[in-house]
Design a protein around this nucleic acid. Structure first.
Length: 560
RNA sequence: GGCCCGUUGGUCAAGAGGCUAAGACAUCGCCCUCUCACGGCGAAAACAUGGGUUCGAUUCCCGUACGGGUCACCA
């Protein structure tokens, strides 16, 4: 650079003739938010690939809690700078899905009353593809200051450099002798421009890998940073920014205070810090979340889109996990003291929990479906029969139309079944997902009642039929539970079975079986299964006619 | 390969120089019980490793191993 000093001003005009606005104009258009001290402004910035996954919810939940519990702002920015990956309608799906998980945005990309995508808020546009003029203002500034330059290398050039670097065992990247366009003359650049060669804008890095420093991440704590010495691409040849450049410009202008993202971005941090400095922006705080892992054989690995269906949010929807269960479970992973808090406050709204970035784990967590199920069972056990009814109906309508028809035919009947063992201090915990409900109570409907249910081993059909016959002859739907059960004990005694299980256990040789066996016979006859919720309640709800006719048919079957 | 992050029972994890190293899920056993689901009690089960520092390290420092991430005109 000792020859004719490059005229950066001229270069900036050549590259961005259409840009007339200045960074100062931008500062005016997007003023500092008038938020109280300590208010967190955070965002979710996904790319619209149509695949909404747990990572989106993990990040969303974290930034949502951080922002809203501090009286701050949460917004959604769509990072659609890669046209190749964009899927039509993906943004709409994303917003829709996230809202189900309690992640609602104060501003940013939103849905209007027709479900179409639109912007809400004063810091837009919130879709990066609509922000090109803004990025160009800063690109021009950087060029003018000699902090960025055009590069005319082709893909083949870059591939060649990579191969060379591999051969020389050098670090990869555009730097040093491979930074071919870093210090070219204005004439050479003019020549390429005139011939219409496509170019990208590169950052002129002044960093050195010899320089190290510390940075404090809100989750990871103090991390060692090695300065970046790569001249990364800022603007692609189509004039659209790379993630890095867009991140710096957008999060500055949108006045983001906390950047919550996956820790796969940690290695990009040196460059981001450098970029913010070069642009004269104040650095936001970073919150790098550990990646969700999964057990694969004997080792952990990152949850994979291709191999793990449970990474996709659509999985939880189709299996029928309540969204609240997923949220609760994720919270147990995100904040280690959440479980204790929840135990102490079983019914408190989630917002009452004091979320803290300090309570987040630096390491990636293993995703545990069994734990999710436990959380979900507990949550569902606390719901009212009415709420369960509504949730199952909604689920079945979409995923199991046949079951939906039976389930909703007589709401009062269905709700009565769902009410068995519900409420009180020790509610039943039978299912973790809506799709399990059919297995739990399907027998209440003729379509799913198993007429060939297996009776307990060790009893001949004749004996069972005799006992069922006796049961039928004394059964009255008017009996209360005690009377009903006493009658069953009488039958037990008559057939040589113990009235009480304890008696039987004391001297098993004296009896053919015990009261438990008698009720098992009736249970199988009525429900087709050896396990069921409270039999008396089941028979009451089923009604005299259905209950007795099922038993009658079983007697015929056993005798036949 | 360079750079970076991580490592307490099978899993999630508390602990932040001195503890018999919490708790939850899962597993197993017992109790309760007409089955199941609950509920109760109990068992088994961990500081990756080698060096330091220290009177004393799971805890602090360095190395090693293992796991993960990243090195694109993808985010």
């Amino acid at each position: 650079m000792d020859q004719t000093l490059i005229d950066y001003e001229t270069l900036a005009e050549w590259l961005f003739p259409e840009v007339t606005e200045t960074p100062e104009d931008m500062e005016k258009r997007y003023p500092v938010r008038g938020l109280p001290e300590g208010a967190v402004v955070s965002r979710l910035a996904p790319s619209p690939t149509g695949f909404v996954h747990l990572g989106n919810v993990v990040q969303g939940l974290t930034s949502e809690r951080l922002a809203h519990q501090s009286g701050g702002v949460l917004f959604l920015r769509i990072e659609d700078t890669d046209a190749k990956r964009e899927v039509k309608g993906a943004s709409e799906i994303l917003i829709e899905m996230l809202s189900h998980y309690g992640i609602v945005f104060d501003e940013g990309a939103s849905l209007d009353e027709n479900g179409a995508i639109c912007d809400k808020g004063d810091y837009g546009p919130y879709k990066q593809s609509n922000r090109a003029p803004i990025y160009h203002v800063y690109a021009k500034k950087l060029v003018r200051e000699g902090k960025a330059y055009p590069c005319f290398c082709t893909e083949e050039d870059l591939d060649r450099f990579h191969a060379e670097q591999e051969a020389e065992k050098a670090n990869f990247g555009y730097y040093g002798k491979w930074a071919k366009w870093r210090d070219r003359s204005l004439e050479e650049i003019r020549e390429q421009l005139d011939s219409g060669t496509p170019w990208v804008l590169r950052f002129r890095s002044t960093g050195s890998i010899e320089h190290k420093f510390k940075y404090n991440d809100l989750i990871k704590g103090e991390v060692d940073i090695t300065e970046n010495d790569i001249d990364h691409v800022l603007l692609k040849s189509d004039g659209i920014p790379t993630y890095h450049f867009a991140h710096a410009v957008d999060d500055h202008l949108m006045r983001t205070t906390h950047v919550v993202r996956g820790d796969e971005w940690l290695s990009g941090l040196p460059f981001h810090i450098q970029l913010f400095q070069a642009l004269g922006f104040r650095l936001p705080k970073y919150v790098h979340i550990g990646t969700l892992m999964k057990m694969d054989g004997t080792s952990k690995r990152k949850l994979s889109k291709r191999k793990d269906p449970e990474l996709a949010l659509s999985y939880y929807k189709s299996v029928g996990y309540p969204t609240d269960s997923v949220v609760e479970y994720l919270m147990t992973i995100l904040n280690s003291n959440f479980e204790d808090w929840r135990r102490a406050n079983p019914l408190a709204p989630l917002d009452d929990f004091k979320f803290s970035a300090k309570k987040m784990n630096a390491a990636g967590s293993l995703f545990d479906l069994a734990k999710l199920s436990d959380v979900s069972k507990n949550l569902i056990s606390r719901m009212s029969a009415e709420d369960v009814y509504n949730a199952v109906s909604e689920w079945a309508k979409e995923f199991d139309g046949e079951f939906y028809d039976d389930f909703t035919r007589e709401p009062a009947f269905t709700k009565a079944v769902l009410a068995i063992g519900r409420g009180g201090n020790k509610p039943r915990k039978d299912f973790a997902t809506w799709s399990e409900v059919k297995g739990y109570m399907g027998f209440m409907f003729d379509r799913y009642y198993e007429a060939n249910g297996a009776y307990p081993d060790g009893f001949d059909a004749g004996t069972i039929a005799d006992i069922l016959t006796d049961f039928l002859s004394t059964y009255s739907s008017a009996d209360d539970q005690t009377v009903w059960f006493d009658k069953m004990k009488d039958i037990a005694e008559k057939h040589g079975f113990a009235r009480e299980t304890k008696e039987y256990k004391a001297s098993p040789e004296a009896y053919r079986g015990h009261i438990g066996d008698i009720s098992a016979f009736v249970r199988v006859a009525v429900t087709g299964k050896q396990n069921s919720p409270d039999l008396y309640a089941v028979m009451s709800i089923l009604g005299h006619e259905v209950a007795t006719s099922r038993i009658q048919k079983q007697i015929e079957r056993l005798r036949g």
